[in-house]
């Protein structure tokens, strides 16, 4: 249906997915207050069932190859931000040091404070998923998920968990925090997969 008299007042941009608008600032989003973690006490754990198969400290993280990522980000609350600049470590490089058994096809990422989100494993391989620690050449601030946040820019931004502390390897997909509240299990902005059933 057409809403008479409704017109676009933003300039058209092919890089903006359907239903999204261009945002110049960088809105902060989270369901709870900002978490403060210092780098020295931060680490990142990879779990296989109840076994810890790897623990990466802040120092370890800095020994991985640095990747600079220039990309657009899309938040399910309808804003998109174009040409953002990030720096981080690619899961591709991490998984070279921690071989992952073939049977695992999903991850459940978890954060300080209790947030979780699920992502297919394949979506963080091949330089598609990162542990990011710099935004716009500066340390990521706590408000935006620093010291380290998950960064999976091809999915809606709720998948890029702030204050990331680890992942659990899963054989079958399971809903994370927002996914349990009815958000989409995958979250492709170009297919507008906002809520379950989209």
């Amino acid at each position: 249906m057409i809403n008479e008299g409704f017109g676009q007042n933003k300039s058209k941009n092919e890089k903006i997915p359907p239903g999204q608008y261009l945002e110049k600032s960088f809105p902060i989003l989270s369901a709870g207050p900002t978490v403060h973690i210092n780098k020295e006490s931060w680490d990142f754990t990879i779990h296989e069932n109840d076994t810890i198969i790897s623990k990466i400290s802040w120092e370890d993280l800095n020994n991985f190859p640095k990747k600079e990522i220039n990309t657009d980000i899309h938040c399910v609350t309808k804003w998109s931000k174009l040409e953002t600049n990030w720096e981080g470590v690619s899961f591709k490089d991490i998984f070279e040091t921690v071989p992952i058994k073939k049977k695992y096809r999903y991850i459940m990422a978890y954060s300080e404070g209790g947030y979780t989100t699920n992502v297919p494993l394949i979506d963080i391989l091949d330089d598609k998923g990162f542990l990011a620690y710099k935004y716009d050449k500066k340390d990521i601030t706590p408000e935006h998920g620093g010291p380290v946040r998950l960064f999976i820019p091809h999915l809606y931004f709720w998948k890029s968990a702030k204050w990331i502390r680890g992942i659990k390897l899963l054989e079958n997909d399971q809903p994370g925090f927002w996914e349990k509240y009815g958000y989409h299990m995958y979250g492709d902005p170009w297919k507008e997969q906002r809520y379950q059933g989209d």
Binding site: S30, G113, Y115, W178
Partner: peptide
Amino acid sequence: ATICMVTPGKNKDTRVTESRKL
């Protein structure tokens, strides 16, 4: 709920996934 990135706090209120299509 508001909604991109979250920290719900130590969340005990795990809910059953609802599959009603919006």
